[in-house]
Design a protein around this nucleic acid. Structure first.
Lengths: 148, 148
DNA sequence: TGAAGATGCTTCGAAAATCGAATTAATTGC
DNA sequence: GCAATTAATTCGATTTTCGAAGCATCTTCA
């Protein structure tokens, strides 16, 4: 007779997700950004340049929303907008020096706690957690087809 | 020479968190609730009755925000407000039958994917993931002091 | 008992997020 | 070249979110 571990796993997962969301909000305030702004800034920062629509689809927002948030990021001098060279309909977003500092200054909030705790674990435990995370990742993100 | 697993673990964690947040938004739309509303409804549903301020502090929102969102949940007949008996300043929030259905109908979105995938794993893997999640949970939630 | 202060919630005003629809500009397909 | 498509912005409307101010209730304690 097997016990179904699913409920327990789900509960733990949910706790983690909730904790993360909560801290997200707290952090944003600390850096003077809202959490949406932080999210968008991070997304842009993850690429050399990126278009608004790419940001929108990556984050699951509408284009209009991104335009709005980017307006604020530009006003705050954290991001620049440049018209695309090849395709002039496009806009290329890029994080400024200042924006990059802001990003450095605000690693997402669980990060510190996680890093600290993680570093203190025995290495077999670290490996286990990493493996589990990657497995989870596979489960949760439906995923791009493997390249031919 | 040890390799630092922290960056890899962090990356995986972040991917999971981002995926969760994204799906949260998508789901909310599907049920006709916004994600904040869903969050608050879930929180209320987790208790027999609960006060607005308890919800606020659990979710890290201001009281005013909760009042606002609860207004909408009440208007949608998902939640009732009752004046506290012992302390008439308080308000007791309670999920209605309709609200409970709504909750059932919208298990948070990763849940299904997770449950399905998880069920398909070998049981040693399930156990490993569960252990890792619980470990993570411990790392990430700073924690209430143990009761005396 | 009856202020004075504390507590719990709502109201109010304002900024920001969020969306869909309409608009403008540029590209691509014939 | 012109029609259809695509990228982004603008517009209008709703929701989220907060802090401050206001109201009602409770507690304290003289």
């Amino acid at each position: 007779m097997e016990i179904d571990l699913t409920p327990a796993a789900l509960l733990a997962l949910r706790k983690i997700l909730d904790a993360a969301e909560l801290e997200n909000r707290k952090m944003a305030a600390a850096t003077g950004l809202t959490s949406s702004q932080a999210l968008v800034l991070r997304q842009i920062g993850g690429h050399e340049t990126i278009t608004p629509s790419a940001v929108a689809s990556a984050l699951g927002f509408g284009q209009a929303t991104i335009t709005n948030i980017v307006d604020r990021l530009v006003a705050a001098q954290l991001v620049t907008r440049t018209r695309g060279l090849a395709d002039k309909r496009q806009v290329m977003l890029q994080v400024t020096e200042l924006g990059r500092e802001k990003l450095k200054a605000s690693p997402f909030p669980l990060q510190m706690r996680f890093s600290q705790g993680y570093a203190g674990l025995a290495s077999w435990e670290q490996a286990m957690i990493l493996a589990a995370l990657e497995r989870l990742d596979g489960l949760l993100t439906p995923e791009a087809p493997a390249p031919a």
